[in-house]
Amino acid sequence: MGFHKCCCLFIPPRVLENLARTGVEQARLSIQQSQQSRAKRGAKIVDMATFTATRKAEAAKRQVYDCKRTWLQRVNLVRSEGAPASTDVAVNDAYNFAGKLRDYFKKVLGRNSIDNLGMDLILNVHFGLKYMNAFWDGDEMTFGDGDGEIFINFSKSLDVVAHELAHGVTQFTANLEYKSQSGALNEHFSDVFGSAITQYADKQTADDADWLIGDEIMGPDLYGEALRSMKAPGTAYDNSLLGKDPQPDHMNSYYAGPEDNEGVHINSGIPNKAFYRVAMDIGTDKAVLVWYAALQKLWATANFNDAVGVIVDSARLLTRAGKVPVGSPQTVRAAFKAVGLPT
């Protein structure tokens, strides 16, 4: 694989990106590997087997830690794989949801955990005091309890836990940079998996689903609201505490400001709406196959137009393989056209 190594060393990143856009698979792989190597070098110490992807695939084990309302992760291991249920609902929710996610990725998408090598699923609950957030930090998931008024416990929601775990999957695949359009795509893929896994677990179809993200964690002050709507971006909430949902549902309302890492949680509404339209046509289960195939081909700096090209291409390949219905590429193209993409 001499070309592969030479790409990393001598071909400027911009040239590699252009080659990737024109469909040169080795260029895409080279960008992805360089990005992941840089990310790993800049992160915590990684063992050589993981770094070189030679570690044997193992079954992912769940580990749930209670942060005991401190601002530290992994304070107290309270439930490991196979251990009996805890008396703490948040611990059991995190454990059970992580199990559903692991099973979904394995059974439906053939993926062995976050890194496809059986990476253990580390979940921290009760992080901080009234912490109204959940995040993926590159290694593990962390959930706050909320303030009890606006937000309740973030680990209470399957789509929130799935959203965070999916950030890990994105990190180990396209590794989309968390800013501007690549960042909005990163958020978009997490919303896609969050919603799809919830539908799968609840045995819902695209028609039955509410397509809301975060509705289960709204506290008594905002009960009935949600944080995002994939069906109707921009309508999830409108109140004096949070303001109005700023998500656009079309490129003609694209947010071009600096806030939110240049709109990563805002402009994700545009591809979210496209995914919803595709799912309504070919079914969420088939739409996810297309999106997951695309995620494995995208690269860190991919923009919306790049994503459209790769997702349509993935739909074509899966149609040829008989995995999604005939006409899926046209459905995907039409869905993106309806939201103003490609530009």
Partner: peptide, 11 residues
């Protein structure tokens, strides 16, 4: 922060 992200942290 040295780079944007990680995902969903407060800034």
């Amino acid at each position: 922060p040295q780079s944007p992200g990680p995902p969903d942290v407060f800034f």
